[in-house]
Amino acid sequence: MNPLVTIRGLCVDAATSAGTAHLLRGVDLDIGRGRIVGVVGESGSGKTTLASALLRLLPANISRISGEIRFDGEDLLTLDSAAMSALRGTRIAMIFQDPMTALNPLFTIGTHLVDVQQRGTAGLSRRDALTRAEAMLTTVGIPDPKRRLSAYPHQLSGGMRQRVMIAMALLVEPDLLLADEPTTALDATVEAQIVQLLSDLRKDFAGSILFISHHLGLVAELCDDLCVMYAGTVVETGPVAEVLAQPKHPYTAALLACEIDDGDTGRLTSIAGEVPSALSTPPGCVFASRCSHRVPLCDHAPPPFEQLGTRGTACLRHRDLAS
């Protein structure tokens, strides 16, 4: 079965006062049907831009988008704005990073949940929409859902608001759910609850999920596939367990080494060097400057993204490194 989403050569540039910033530099990624794909990478690696590009809700300073994003066979980048808008909140839904600001403070939870449903389902009455919303709030673990429907966002905690956002996303029964660091703004206990909730919901949710996080452990727990991003490129993809057990790209390996394990002696490891600026274009591999396996050829040209069965990587030396 062909993947739900096929992204090929996706480039996104933004015009800034300092020059053109390359937010995505040719991203290739597949999102399989019913799969949860975890996207990890440091801040600024292009994770959020990737999600925004899938909804085509990019900031106003975007100067160029090229490549293709095939969603169920249709290239989203060639759709007119009406056709794109028709997909939003029906087949593609999104959960945002900061639940504190993602809901309008002047409208009740019920109004939010009714409007997103009525937009997708013509002729749905407010009463029916509220009944569905109430049931969904129960599903996402919100106690006393009837009362919450008439509550305003500020009357709910951050964790509750994120549950509301999840309910909103699930109510429209999307084929693709984009979750942009949905637990980053929450404290650790609440984060664990939300991850538990997402993992519980998997049983009933048939769609695919793009789960963005900078937390590798979280992705390992929740996701089927992993996509490692670095400086606007995808450096490695594959089933989570395989990638984590045997990373093919030096960046993935370095990222794994930075994870805090129970057995650690207490010293935090980090990757030496800095992420190249989005304003510059290194002639070769974007990770070369920080890579401990760098050879002269790495600086020559960007390494091609090689697909080997379920695994994929953009490293010239992945064969040498495997042995």
Binding site: L57, R88, A102, P105, R119
Partner: peptide
């Protein structure tokens, strides 16, 4: 420019 308006756009609200 507020995030909650982006939410509404992301859900295709008219």
């Amino acid at each position: 420019g507020e995030p909650h308006i982006r939410t509404m756009r992301a859900y295709g609200i008219a």
